[in-house]
Amino acid sequence: MKISGREHVVGFMFIAPLLILFAVFLVYGFYFIVHASFYDQTLSFRDATFVGWDNYATALSDNRFLRSIVNNLAYSAAAILISLSVGFLLSVVLNMGIRGSKLLGSLFFIPSFMPLALIAMVFSIMLEFRFGTLNQLLHGIGLDFLAQRWLSDPTLAYMSVISISVFLIGLPMMYYNADMTTINTGILEAAVIDGAGLGRMLWNVMFPLLKNAHKTIILSTLLGSFREFERVFLLTQGGPAGTTENSSVYIYSFARSAGANIGYVCAASVIVLLIALGISVIQLIAYRPRTGKGGGHEFRSRKPQAEENH
């Protein structure tokens, strides 16, 4: 059926507020960073000189920038690993009817409801070398040799940043809990009758059954890593010597340094934006809504064979 002119107008009236806001902030914003990325200029936006692709060449040959992107991926890999192991096990175990499960569950969830900035700050106080609670505790119980420079040794600083992912396990647990309510308990009963022990139940039955939750967690963690800022910024400030920087902290520190070349910051921003959009496209394909009658209300996986491709 052909759509009448009036229908077009009515439709656009409904989305007009959204379009105006996006045009002012995002469309213009994207134009702005792409345009600025070809110039050498400061934040006063005066005296810009056209430099072509120079800013991109500088960014792509800057090891610190490349490392910050690798760090994004490394932090997400660690977070995914933690979610799929610790998060998965906790979610299953807390549903077994162990005494105190409710209280423990609340305990594991609460940090996810707090600002990440606050958590990062508490961790930085806890892990501080001289006055930090962790080292003081280790000294107190005579384990002096275990007291380390948690935030200034490169390897340990990585571990410290990653340790916050364990503390934020509540979010993946939400996905697992939601997915678990859709499991048909008949399958589990059948597996038990067939003689599956606890280990096999966990890894061969439960784990594959929760594949939708795994998928959501993997994609949202990856995408989130390009948004994340305060964890590294407040815990290690990107240090020691920029080793723990992620892309957000890298861009932010350049943008805030005095007299910085804003064109360069914008070129780095464009590169990060393109990578994030790439991940977003993968996500859209992975969750393509089912078309047709009644479809599209949920993001469903497509046919199983299509899913095996990635």
């Binding site: 002012v24 600025a36 800022f229 921003s269 934006l273």
Partner: peptide
Amino acid sequence: LLCLAVPGVVILIPFYYI
């Protein structure tokens, strides 16, 4: 939907200007 991916830090400078 694609704009779900836009990282805050990337858009800071244009937002500041706007």
